[in-house]
């Protein structure tokens, strides 16, 4: 049996209109309400730096900032972000003029395949803004929402320490005391 491509079904889907403000630029959208912020950025606006790793809130590859806070764009509806300030990796440096965190990731080889990297970098920026780069252990804990299957964690910590000036035995208020506690 041969298949013929069918014309686009004419049923109308609930549409929603809103404006995404990304890296300081407004993008008016009219779309199917199901569109996630991740897919809006990646597929509709062509900002492909934000990555889909799981689409389930379990990996951190899609981390962006909304109103200055790091969040997962895969579990955020695009329509929810009307009038919010969204920041993505595209708003940082360029290849010729890297942002200091991007530069540190490059110097410390804090990535391999590079797929989780934009999310790691956006998360690292969030971490520093939150004041959580006080010690290597604190960085490890608060970067744990970003999975790197290539296993670049050690170099990610080094890159963040480099930018934040983290000392070895620095402050670690928020880190569980050797999680699982000590007897």
């Amino acid at each position: 049996m041969t298949l013929q491509a069918k014309p686009h079904a004419e049923e109308s889907l609930p549409q929603t209109e809103f404006t995404l403000r990304v890296n300081g630029r407004d993008h008016p959208l009219r779309t199917d309400a199901r569109l996630t912020l991740l897919d809006a950025l990646h597929d509709r606006l062509g900002l492909t730096g934000t990555k889909k790793g799981c689409d389930q809130g379990t990996c951190g590859a899609c981390t962006v900032h909304v109103d200055g806070r790091r969040v997962l764009s895969c579990l955020t509806l695009a329509a929810q972000c009307d009038e919010r300030e969204i920041a993505t990796v595209e708003g940082l440096g360029t290849e010729d003029e890297l942002h200091p965190v991007q530069r540190a990731f490059l110097e410390h080889d804090a990535f391999q395949c590079g797929y989780c990297t934009p999310g790691q970098i956006m998360s690292a920026l969030g971490l520093m803004a939150e004041g959580r780069a006080g010690s290597p252990d604190e960085i490890r804990e608060y970067m744990s929402g970003n999975i790197c299957r290539c296993g670049a964690y050690q170099n990610i910590v080094a890159a963040i320490r480099d930018v934040a000036g983290t000392e070895d035995g620095g402050r670690a208020d928020d880190v569980p005391q050797a999680e699982g506690g000590r007897p």
Binding site: V89, F111, G114
Partner: peptide, 15 residues
């Protein structure tokens, strides 16, 4: 440093 590093850290490497 990785020669493809600048592309990767800027999110511009095309997967």
């Amino acid at each position: 440093n990785r020669v493809d590093g600048p592309l990767k850290v800027t999110g511009r490497a095309p997967y």
